[in-house]
Design a protein around this nucleic acid. Structure first.
Length: 426
RNA sequence: GGAGAAGUACCCAAGUGGCUAUAAGGGGCUCCCCUGCUAAGGGAGUAGGUUGUGUAAACGGCGCGAGGGUUCGAAUCCCUCCUUCUCCGCCA
Protein backbone atom coordinates (compact mmCIF):
# COMPACT_ATOMS: atom_id res chain seq x y z
CA UNK A 1 0.00 0.00 0.00
CA UNK A 2 1.23 3.46 -0.79
CA UNK A 3 1.55 6.24 1.75
CA UNK A 4 -1.72 8.18 1.59
CA UNK A 5 -0.05 11.43 2.62
CA UNK A 6 2.52 11.12 -0.10
CA UNK A 7 -0.12 10.32 -2.67
CA UNK A 8 -2.17 13.32 -1.60
CA UNK A 9 0.76 15.72 -1.68
CA UNK A 10 2.52 14.40 -4.73
CA UNK A 11 -0.30 12.93 -6.76
CA UNK A 12 0.87 13.70 -10.31
CA UNK A 13 4.45 12.61 -9.74
CA UNK A 14 3.38 9.32 -8.16
CA UNK A 15 0.91 8.66 -10.95
CA UNK A 16 3.61 9.22 -13.53
CA UNK A 17 5.88 6.67 -11.83
CA UNK A 18 3.12 4.10 -11.65
CA UNK A 19 2.33 4.53 -15.31
CA UNK A 20 5.79 3.21 -16.15
CA UNK A 21 4.59 -0.20 -15.04
CA UNK A 22 2.36 -0.26 -18.08
CA UNK A 23 -0.67 -1.19 -16.02
CA UNK A 24 -3.98 0.53 -16.28
CA UNK A 25 -4.26 2.82 -13.27
CA UNK A 26 -7.12 5.08 -14.25
CA UNK A 27 -8.78 4.10 -10.98
CA UNK A 28 -6.18 6.18 -9.22
CA UNK A 29 -7.98 9.35 -10.18
CA UNK A 30 -10.74 8.55 -7.71
CA UNK A 31 -8.26 8.89 -4.89
CA UNK A 32 -8.27 12.65 -4.46
CA UNK A 33 -12.03 12.81 -4.35
CA UNK A 34 -12.39 9.96 -1.84
CA UNK A 35 -9.60 11.28 0.31
CA UNK A 36 -11.15 14.70 0.54
CA UNK A 37 -14.61 13.46 1.25
CA UNK A 38 -13.18 11.21 3.94
CA UNK A 39 -11.49 14.07 5.72
CA UNK A 40 -14.60 16.18 5.43
CA UNK A 41 -16.75 13.56 7.07
CA UNK A 42 -14.23 13.00 9.82
CA UNK A 43 -14.37 16.64 10.74
CA UNK A 44 -18.15 16.70 10.78
CA UNK A 45 -18.56 13.58 12.82
CA UNK A 46 -15.85 14.49 15.29
CA UNK A 47 -17.38 17.85 15.97
CA UNK A 48 -20.65 16.17 16.85
CA UNK A 49 -18.93 13.57 18.99
CA UNK A 50 -17.24 16.30 20.93
CA UNK A 51 -20.57 17.99 21.54
CA UNK A 52 -22.18 14.72 22.58
CA UNK A 53 -19.41 14.02 25.06
CA UNK A 54 -19.77 17.45 26.61
CA UNK A 55 -23.51 17.16 27.01
CA UNK A 56 -23.31 13.65 28.42
CA UNK A 57 -21.01 14.86 31.14
CA UNK A 58 -23.36 17.71 31.93
CA UNK A 59 -26.30 15.30 32.13
CA UNK A 60 -24.35 13.09 34.49
CA UNK A 61 -23.50 16.05 36.66
CA UNK A 62 -27.10 17.22 36.89
CA UNK A 63 -28.39 13.74 37.67
CA UNK A 64 -25.96 13.55 40.52
CA UNK A 65 -27.34 16.79 41.88
CA UNK A 66 -30.91 15.74 41.18
CA UNK A 67 -31.52 18.52 38.65
CA UNK A 68 -33.76 17.82 35.67
CA UNK A 69 -31.77 17.28 32.44
CA UNK A 70 -34.51 16.52 30.00
CA UNK A 71 -33.74 19.57 27.84
CA UNK A 72 -30.17 18.39 27.35
CA UNK A 73 -31.26 14.85 26.62
CA UNK A 74 -33.68 16.06 23.97
CA UNK A 75 -31.01 18.23 22.38
CA UNK A 76 -28.46 15.43 22.20
CA UNK A 77 -30.88 13.02 20.65
CA UNK A 78 -30.62 14.87 17.35
CA UNK A 79 -26.89 15.26 17.65
CA UNK A 80 -26.55 11.51 18.00
CA UNK A 81 -28.74 10.80 15.03
CA UNK A 82 -26.75 13.12 12.77
CA UNK A 83 -23.54 11.71 14.09
CA UNK A 84 -24.55 8.22 13.15
CA UNK A 85 -25.44 9.30 9.65
CA UNK A 86 -22.03 10.86 9.10
CA UNK A 87 -20.41 7.84 10.67
CA UNK A 88 -22.11 5.58 8.22
CA UNK A 89 -21.14 7.71 5.23
CA UNK A 90 -17.62 7.82 6.55
CA UNK A 91 -17.47 4.07 6.86
CA UNK A 92 -18.58 3.65 3.26
CA UNK A 93 -16.02 6.15 1.97
CA UNK A 94 -13.22 4.59 4.00
CA UNK A 95 -14.13 1.18 2.68
CA UNK A 96 -13.99 2.48 -0.88
CA UNK A 97 -10.71 4.22 -0.29
CA UNK A 98 -9.22 1.13 1.33
CA UNK A 99 -10.28 -1.07 -1.59
CA UNK A 100 -8.78 1.42 -4.01
CA UNK A 101 -5.50 1.62 -2.10
CA UNK A 102 -5.23 -2.17 -2.04
CA UNK A 103 -5.27 -2.32 -5.83
CA UNK A 104 -2.55 0.26 -6.46
CA UNK A 105 0.86 -1.34 -7.15
CA UNK A 106 4.14 -0.31 -5.61
CA UNK A 107 6.27 2.51 -7.02
CA UNK A 108 9.34 1.25 -8.91
CA UNK A 109 12.74 2.29 -7.54
CA UNK A 110 14.80 4.65 -9.68
CA UNK A 111 17.37 1.92 -10.41
CA UNK A 112 14.72 -0.22 -12.11
CA UNK A 113 14.99 -0.22 -15.91
CA UNK A 114 11.92 1.15 -17.66
CA UNK A 115 10.55 -1.41 -20.08
CA UNK A 116 7.57 -2.92 -21.79
CA UNK A 117 8.26 -6.64 -21.61
CA UNK A 118 10.69 -9.24 -20.33
CA UNK A 119 12.93 -8.29 -23.26
CA UNK A 120 13.82 -5.16 -21.32
CA UNK A 121 15.10 -6.91 -18.21
CA UNK A 122 18.71 -6.05 -17.61
CA UNK A 123 21.32 -8.78 -17.18
CA UNK A 124 23.49 -7.84 -14.21
CA UNK A 125 25.92 -10.76 -14.13
CA UNK A 126 26.39 -14.39 -15.01
CA UNK A 127 28.15 -17.11 -13.06
CA UNK A 128 29.54 -20.46 -14.15
CA UNK A 129 30.12 -22.08 -17.51
CA UNK A 130 27.23 -23.23 -19.64
CA UNK A 131 28.01 -26.96 -19.98
CA UNK A 132 28.53 -28.55 -23.37
CA UNK A 133 27.84 -32.26 -23.53
CA UNK A 134 29.66 -34.70 -25.84
CA UNK A 135 26.49 -36.84 -25.88
CA UNK A 136 22.76 -36.23 -26.43
CA UNK A 137 21.37 -34.30 -23.47
CA UNK A 138 18.37 -35.69 -21.66
CA UNK A 139 15.66 -33.62 -20.05
CA UNK A 140 15.09 -34.14 -16.34
CA UNK A 141 11.64 -35.61 -16.95
CA UNK A 142 13.23 -38.42 -18.96
CA UNK A 143 16.16 -38.88 -16.60
CA UNK A 144 13.79 -38.81 -13.62
CA UNK A 145 11.61 -41.56 -14.97
CA UNK A 146 14.54 -43.69 -16.16
CA UNK A 147 16.27 -43.47 -12.80
CA UNK A 148 13.05 -44.08 -10.86
CA UNK A 149 13.25 -40.67 -9.23
CA UNK A 150 10.06 -39.08 -10.53
CA UNK A 151 6.62 -40.46 -11.34
CA UNK A 152 4.34 -38.05 -13.17
CA UNK A 153 1.88 -40.60 -14.51
CA UNK A 154 0.78 -41.98 -11.19
CA UNK A 155 0.57 -38.49 -9.71
CA UNK A 156 -1.87 -37.46 -12.39
CA UNK A 157 -3.91 -40.59 -11.65
CA UNK A 158 -3.89 -39.95 -7.92
CA UNK A 159 -4.42 -36.21 -8.10
CA UNK A 160 -4.26 -34.56 -11.51
CA UNK A 161 -1.95 -32.81 -13.91
CA UNK A 162 0.96 -30.76 -12.60
CA UNK A 163 1.59 -33.04 -9.63
CA UNK A 164 4.44 -35.46 -9.09
CA UNK A 165 5.63 -38.31 -6.89
CA UNK A 166 9.28 -38.08 -5.89
CA UNK A 167 10.58 -41.58 -5.31
CA UNK A 168 13.77 -43.28 -4.20
CA UNK A 169 16.84 -41.21 -4.99
CA UNK A 170 14.53 -38.44 -6.22
CA UNK A 171 12.81 -38.13 -2.85
CA UNK A 172 16.15 -38.32 -1.10
CA UNK A 173 17.63 -35.66 -3.36
CA UNK A 174 14.70 -33.33 -2.73
CA UNK A 175 15.07 -33.86 1.01
CA UNK A 176 18.85 -33.40 0.84
CA UNK A 177 18.47 -30.10 -0.97
CA UNK A 178 15.98 -28.81 1.57
CA UNK A 179 18.27 -29.75 4.44
CA UNK A 180 21.34 -28.34 2.78
CA UNK A 181 19.65 -25.03 1.98
CA UNK A 182 18.14 -24.65 5.44
CA UNK A 183 21.48 -25.44 7.08
CA UNK A 184 23.35 -23.00 4.85
CA UNK A 185 21.00 -20.11 5.57
CA UNK A 186 20.62 -20.71 9.28
CA UNK A 187 24.25 -21.63 10.05
CA UNK A 188 26.15 -19.39 7.64
CA UNK A 189 23.75 -16.59 6.73
CA UNK A 190 22.15 -16.09 10.18
CA UNK A 191 18.52 -16.67 9.34
CA UNK A 192 16.17 -18.17 11.89
CA UNK A 193 14.73 -21.45 10.68
CA UNK A 194 10.96 -21.62 10.27
CA UNK A 195 8.41 -24.16 9.14
CA UNK A 196 5.19 -22.17 8.73
CA UNK A 197 1.52 -23.10 8.42
CA UNK A 198 0.71 -24.07 4.82
CA UNK A 199 -2.68 -22.39 5.00
CA UNK A 200 -3.31 -18.77 5.87
CA UNK A 201 -6.32 -16.57 6.29
CA UNK A 202 -7.52 -13.78 4.02
CA UNK A 203 -5.88 -11.02 6.07
CA UNK A 204 -2.46 -12.60 5.60
CA UNK A 205 -2.93 -12.94 1.85
CA UNK A 206 -3.92 -9.28 1.73
CA UNK A 207 -0.99 -8.25 3.90
CA UNK A 208 1.64 -9.51 1.49
CA UNK A 209 -0.29 -8.41 -1.60
CA UNK A 210 -1.68 -11.63 -3.12
CA UNK A 211 -5.19 -10.34 -2.44
CA UNK A 212 -7.45 -8.80 -3.49
CA UNK A 213 -6.10 -8.70 -7.06
CA UNK A 214 -4.77 -12.21 -7.57
CA UNK A 215 -7.31 -14.45 -5.87
CA UNK A 216 -7.63 -16.73 -8.88
CA UNK A 217 -3.96 -17.70 -8.57
CA UNK A 218 -4.42 -19.30 -5.17
CA UNK A 219 -6.15 -22.42 -3.87
CA UNK A 220 -8.91 -21.55 -1.46
CA UNK A 221 -10.32 -23.73 1.32
CA UNK A 222 -13.90 -22.56 1.12
CA UNK A 223 -15.21 -23.81 4.46
CA UNK A 224 -12.72 -21.77 6.46
CA UNK A 225 -11.83 -19.15 3.89
CA UNK A 226 -8.21 -20.20 4.20
CA UNK A 227 -5.73 -20.17 1.33
CA UNK A 228 -3.01 -22.70 0.54
CA UNK A 229 0.17 -20.64 0.61
CA UNK A 230 1.69 -19.85 -2.80
CA UNK A 231 4.97 -19.16 -0.99
CA UNK A 232 6.24 -19.12 2.61
CA UNK A 233 6.60 -15.38 2.15
CA UNK A 234 2.95 -15.09 3.11
CA UNK A 235 2.91 -16.76 6.54
CA UNK A 236 6.42 -15.64 7.43
CA UNK A 237 6.01 -11.95 6.59
CA UNK A 238 2.65 -11.98 8.33
CA UNK A 239 4.21 -13.41 11.49
CA UNK A 240 4.86 -9.80 12.44
CA UNK A 241 1.59 -8.37 11.18
CA UNK A 242 0.18 -5.70 13.52
CA UNK A 243 3.37 -5.70 15.58
CA UNK A 244 5.80 -3.03 16.65
CA UNK A 245 9.31 -4.42 16.55
CA UNK A 246 12.05 -3.11 18.84
CA UNK A 247 14.50 -1.29 16.57
CA UNK A 248 17.65 -2.94 17.87
CA UNK A 249 16.38 -6.27 16.56
CA UNK A 250 16.61 -5.08 12.94
CA UNK A 251 17.73 -6.31 10.55
CA UNK A 252 16.79 -9.97 10.91
CA UNK A 253 15.55 -12.74 8.70
CA UNK A 254 13.82 -16.08 8.54
CA UNK A 255 14.67 -19.02 6.36
CA UNK A 256 11.46 -20.94 5.84
CA UNK A 257 10.90 -24.32 4.28
CA UNK A 258 7.41 -25.02 2.99
CA UNK A 259 5.43 -26.62 0.26
CA UNK A 260 3.89 -24.02 -2.06
CA UNK A 261 0.62 -24.24 -3.95
CA UNK A 262 -0.30 -22.34 -7.09
CA UNK A 263 -3.31 -22.72 -9.30
CA UNK A 264 -1.31 -21.57 -12.35
CA UNK A 265 -4.44 -20.01 -13.76
CA UNK A 266 -3.51 -18.58 -17.12
CA UNK A 267 -0.42 -20.73 -17.63
CA UNK A 268 -2.19 -23.58 -19.39
CA UNK A 269 0.16 -25.03 -22.00
CA UNK A 270 3.32 -23.52 -20.49
CA UNK A 271 6.04 -25.76 -19.08
CA UNK A 272 3.74 -28.75 -19.30
CA UNK A 273 6.50 -31.31 -18.83
CA UNK A 274 8.60 -31.99 -15.80
CA UNK A 275 9.09 -30.24 -12.50
CA UNK A 276 9.19 -26.66 -13.73
CA UNK A 277 5.58 -25.65 -13.20
CA UNK A 278 3.70 -27.73 -10.66
CA UNK A 279 0.65 -26.99 -8.56
CA UNK A 280 2.64 -28.06 -5.51
CA UNK A 281 6.35 -27.61 -5.03
CA UNK A 282 8.85 -27.21 -2.21
CA UNK A 283 10.70 -24.01 -1.60
CA UNK A 284 13.09 -22.51 0.90
CA UNK A 285 12.21 -18.85 1.26
CA UNK A 286 14.29 -16.06 2.77
CA UNK A 287 12.41 -13.19 4.40
CA UNK A 288 14.09 -10.12 5.88
CA UNK A 289 12.85 -7.25 8.05
CA UNK A 290 15.15 -4.25 7.83
CA UNK A 291 15.62 -0.55 8.52
CA UNK A 292 14.24 1.60 5.66
CA UNK A 293 17.60 3.22 4.95
CA UNK A 294 19.27 -0.18 4.51
CA UNK A 295 16.83 -2.02 2.33
CA UNK A 296 18.75 -1.70 -0.95
CA UNK A 297 22.00 -2.96 0.49
CA UNK A 298 19.95 -5.69 2.18
CA UNK A 299 18.56 -6.67 -1.22
CA UNK A 300 22.11 -7.22 -2.50
CA UNK A 301 22.90 -9.28 0.60
CA UNK A 302 19.77 -11.40 0.23
CA UNK A 303 20.40 -12.00 -3.46
CA UNK A 304 23.92 -13.10 -2.59
CA UNK A 305 22.54 -15.64 -0.11
CA UNK A 306 20.39 -17.18 -2.83
CA UNK A 307 23.25 -17.17 -5.35
CA UNK A 308 25.50 -19.00 -2.90
CA UNK A 309 23.24 -22.04 -3.15
CA UNK A 310 23.70 -22.24 -6.92
CA UNK A 311 27.43 -21.71 -6.60
CA UNK A 312 27.72 -24.53 -4.07
CA UNK A 313 25.68 -26.77 -6.33
CA UNK A 314 27.89 -25.81 -9.30
CA UNK A 315 24.96 -24.64 -11.39
CA UNK A 316 25.47 -21.82 -13.91
CA UNK A 317 23.12 -18.87 -13.58
CA UNK A 318 22.53 -15.24 -14.37
CA UNK A 319 20.99 -12.38 -12.41
CA UNK A 320 18.48 -10.02 -14.00
CA UNK A 321 17.30 -6.61 -12.84
CA UNK A 322 13.62 -6.83 -13.67
CA UNK A 323 12.20 -3.95 -15.68
CA UNK A 324 9.10 -1.96 -14.75
CA UNK A 325 6.83 -4.20 -16.82
CA UNK A 326 8.04 -7.37 -15.12
CA UNK A 327 8.26 -6.17 -11.53
CA UNK A 328 5.10 -7.66 -10.17
CA UNK A 329 2.53 -5.86 -8.11
CA UNK A 330 4.32 -5.52 -4.80
CA UNK A 331 8.02 -5.05 -5.52
CA UNK A 332 9.89 -1.75 -5.78
CA UNK A 333 12.85 -3.63 -7.20
CA UNK A 334 13.35 -7.27 -8.09
CA UNK A 335 16.25 -9.45 -9.13
CA UNK A 336 15.46 -12.76 -10.78
CA UNK A 337 18.10 -15.44 -10.60
CA UNK A 338 17.87 -17.78 -13.58
CA UNK A 339 19.57 -21.14 -13.70
CA UNK A 340 20.82 -22.76 -16.88
CA UNK A 341 18.51 -25.54 -17.99
CA UNK A 342 19.98 -27.71 -20.78
CA UNK A 343 16.60 -29.11 -21.86
CA UNK A 344 15.34 -25.58 -22.45
CA UNK A 345 18.66 -24.44 -23.85
CA UNK A 346 17.95 -21.32 -21.86
CA UNK A 347 18.00 -19.81 -18.41
CA UNK A 348 14.94 -20.39 -16.23
CA UNK A 349 13.88 -18.50 -13.13
CA UNK A 350 14.84 -20.27 -9.92
CA UNK A 351 14.71 -17.38 -7.45
CA UNK A 352 13.11 -14.00 -7.25
CA UNK A 353 14.58 -11.53 -4.78
CA UNK A 354 12.54 -8.44 -4.04
CA UNK A 355 12.62 -5.27 -2.01
CA UNK A 356 9.09 -4.23 -1.16
CA UNK A 357 10.22 -1.18 0.78
CA UNK A 358 7.29 -0.31 3.07
CA UNK A 359 4.59 -1.56 0.68
CA UNK A 360 3.89 -4.82 2.50
CA UNK A 361 4.64 -3.28 5.89
CA UNK A 362 1.85 -0.75 5.37
CA UNK A 363 -0.60 -3.41 4.29
CA UNK A 364 0.32 -5.74 7.10
CA UNK A 365 0.99 -2.95 9.60
CA UNK A 366 4.51 -4.04 10.52
CA UNK A 367 6.32 -1.26 12.33
CA UNK A 368 9.36 -0.62 14.50
CA UNK A 369 10.71 1.91 16.96
CA UNK A 370 14.30 3.05 16.86
CA UNK A 371 14.16 3.39 20.65
CA UNK A 372 11.36 3.06 23.20
CA UNK A 373 10.40 6.74 23.03
CA UNK A 374 10.71 7.12 19.27
CA UNK A 375 7.92 7.44 16.73
CA UNK A 376 6.77 4.27 15.04
CA UNK A 377 7.99 3.74 11.49
CA UNK A 378 7.23 1.07 8.93
CA UNK A 379 9.93 -1.55 8.41
CA UNK A 380 11.06 -2.52 4.94
CA UNK A 381 10.48 -6.13 3.97
CA UNK A 382 12.38 -8.25 1.46
CA UNK A 383 12.25 -11.79 0.36
CA UNK A 384 13.74 -14.20 -2.10
CA UNK A 385 13.71 -17.87 -2.88
CA UNK A 386 16.70 -19.66 -1.58
CA UNK A 387 15.77 -21.69 -3.69
CA UNK A 388 12.79 -23.27 -5.39
CA UNK A 389 13.61 -26.91 -4.68
CA UNK A 390 11.82 -28.62 -7.58
CA UNK A 391 13.52 -26.45 -10.16
CA UNK A 392 16.83 -27.00 -8.37
CA UNK A 393 16.37 -30.76 -8.71
CA UNK A 394 15.64 -30.33 -12.40
CA UNK A 395 18.66 -28.11 -12.97
CA UNK A 396 20.92 -30.38 -10.98
CA UNK A 397 19.82 -33.51 -12.84
CA UNK A 398 20.24 -31.93 -16.24
CA UNK A 399 23.48 -30.02 -15.67
CA UNK A 400 25.20 -32.85 -13.83
CA UNK A 401 24.11 -35.73 -16.03
CA UNK A 402 26.85 -38.05 -17.25
CA UNK A 403 27.22 -40.02 -20.44
CA UNK A 404 26.25 -43.29 -18.73
CA UNK A 405 22.89 -41.84 -17.69
CA UNK A 406 23.89 -41.22 -14.08
CA UNK A 407 23.77 -37.93 -12.22
CA UNK A 408 26.74 -36.49 -10.38
CA UNK A 409 26.00 -35.24 -6.89
CA UNK A 410 27.88 -32.03 -6.02
CA UNK A 411 30.19 -32.19 -3.07
CA UNK A 412 28.10 -30.16 -0.62
CA UNK A 413 25.20 -32.59 -1.01
CA UNK A 414 27.07 -35.85 -0.70
CA UNK A 415 26.84 -36.02 3.09
CA UNK A 416 23.11 -35.44 2.85
CA UNK A 417 22.88 -38.31 0.33
CA UNK A 418 24.54 -40.93 2.47
CA UNK A 419 27.96 -40.28 0.95
CA UNK A 420 26.87 -41.10 -2.57
CA UNK A 421 28.67 -39.36 -5.43
CA UNK A 422 26.27 -40.41 -8.18
CA UNK A 423 22.69 -41.41 -8.72
CA UNK A 424 22.48 -44.23 -11.23
CA UNK A 425 20.03 -46.69 -12.62
CA UNK A 426 19.55 -49.81 -10.55
C1' G B 1 -17.77 -31.69 17.61
C1' G B 2 -20.51 -30.86 22.75
C1' A B 3 -20.69 -28.17 27.62
C1' G B 4 -18.69 -24.36 30.64
C1' A B 5 -15.33 -20.09 31.88
C1' A B 6 -12.46 -16.03 30.55
C1' G B 7 -10.35 -11.79 27.42
C1' U B 8 -9.36 -4.27 30.88
C1' A B 9 -2.21 -0.86 30.58
C1' C B 10 4.40 -4.22 30.37
C1' C B 11 2.17 -8.40 33.90
C1' C B 12 -1.72 -9.71 37.65
C1' A B 13 -6.22 -7.49 38.62
C1' A B 14 -10.75 -4.04 40.58
C1' G B 15 -14.65 -1.92 38.06
C1' U B 16 -22.42 -4.60 36.46
C1' G B 17 -25.45 2.29 32.69
C1' G B 18 -23.31 8.71 34.23
C1' C B 19 -20.05 9.33 40.82
C1' U B 20 -13.27 10.63 37.49
C1' A B 21 -10.43 5.22 31.82
C1' U B 22 -8.06 11.51 34.05
C1' A B 23 -8.40 3.08 35.12
C1' A B 24 -8.60 1.35 42.18
C1' G B 25 -5.05 -2.17 44.20
C1' G B 26 -0.63 -5.24 43.45
C1' G B 27 3.79 -6.47 40.65
C1' G B 28 7.50 -4.81 37.34
C1' C B 29 10.30 -0.75 35.30
C1' U B 30 12.63 4.54 35.74
C1' C B 31 14.26 8.48 38.97
C1' C B 32 15.06 10.47 43.98
C1' C B 33 15.80 9.92 49.45
C1' C B 34 17.37 6.95 53.58
C1' U B 35 20.47 2.98 54.69
C1' G B 36 25.24 0.99 53.45
C1' C B 37 26.40 -3.59 50.06
C1' U B 38 24.32 -9.71 46.63
C1' A B 39 19.19 -7.00 51.96
C1' A B 40 15.24 -3.79 53.64
C1' G B 41 12.45 0.89 53.83
C1' G B 42 10.28 5.80 52.09
C1' G B 43 8.82 9.15 47.99
C1' A B 44 7.79 10.42 42.85
C1' G B 45 6.92 8.86 37.81
C1' U B 46 5.14 5.17 34.41
C1' A B 47 -1.06 4.44 28.44
C1' G B 48 0.26 3.11 24.06
C1' G B 49 -1.27 3.48 19.45
C1' U B 50 -3.91 5.74 15.70
C1' U B 51 -6.43 9.64 13.33
C1' G B 52 -8.29 15.00 12.12
C1' U B 53 -7.27 20.47 12.05
C1' G B 54 -2.71 23.33 12.22
C1' U B 55 3.73 25.82 9.55
C1' A B 56 4.10 24.87 14.69
C1' A B 57 2.89 25.05 19.70
C1' A B 58 -1.46 22.99 20.48
C1' C B 59 -6.50 21.38 20.40
C1' G B 60 -9.88 17.41 19.18
C1' G B 61 -11.81 12.11 17.79
C1' C B 62 -11.23 6.79 18.73
C1' G B 63 -9.67 2.80 22.47
C1' C B 64 -11.86 -2.34 28.02
C1' G B 65 -10.52 -9.30 22.41
C1' A B 66 -13.12 -7.70 17.19
C1' G B 67 -17.54 -5.93 14.83
C1' G B 68 -22.54 -4.43 15.20
C1' G B 69 -26.96 -2.89 18.25
C1' U B 70 -29.91 -0.54 22.41
C1' U B 71 -29.40 4.43 25.01
C1' C B 72 -29.01 11.44 25.58
C1' G B 73 -24.82 8.45 27.64
C1' A B 74 -21.94 1.49 27.39
C1' A B 75 -15.98 -1.77 29.98
C1' U B 76 -20.97 -2.47 32.12
C1' C B 77 -27.19 -4.41 28.67
C1' C B 78 -28.24 -7.29 23.73
C1' C B 79 -26.43 -9.87 19.07
C1' U B 80 -22.48 -12.01 15.89
C1' C B 81 -17.53 -13.46 15.51
C1' C B 82 -12.30 -14.48 17.23
C1' U B 83 -8.80 -16.32 20.75
C1' U B 84 -7.39 -18.81 25.29
C1' C B 85 -8.44 -22.21 29.34
C1' U B 86 -11.23 -26.53 31.71
C1' C B 87 -14.17 -30.99 31.14
C1' C B 88 -16.30 -34.60 27.61
C1' G B 89 -16.06 -36.89 22.67
C1' C B 90 -12.95 -37.99 18.43
C1' C B 91 -8.07 -38.41 16.56
C1' A B 92 -1.94 -38.66 14.22
Amino acid sequence: MLDVKRLRKDFDAVKKKLEKRGENIDELDRFLELDESRRNLIQKTEELKKRRNEVSQEVAKRKRENIDAQDLIDETKNVSINMKQYDEELRAVEEDLQQLMLTIPNIPHESVPIGESEEDNEEIRTWGEIPSFPFPVKAHWDLGVELGMLDFERASKVTGSRFVFYKGAGAKLERALISYMMDLHSDKHEYEEVIPPYMVNRESMTGTGQLPKFEEDAFNIREEDYFLIPTAEVPVTNMHRDEIIEGWKLPFGYSAYSACFRSEAGSAGRDTRGLIRQHQFNKVELVRFVHPEDSYSQLELLTGHAEKVLQDLELPYRVLNMCTADLGFTAAKKYDIEVWLPSYEDYKEISSCSNFEDFQARRANIRFKRDPKAKTEFVHTLNGSGLAVGRTVAALMENHQEEDGSIRIPKVLQNYMGGRTHIQAK
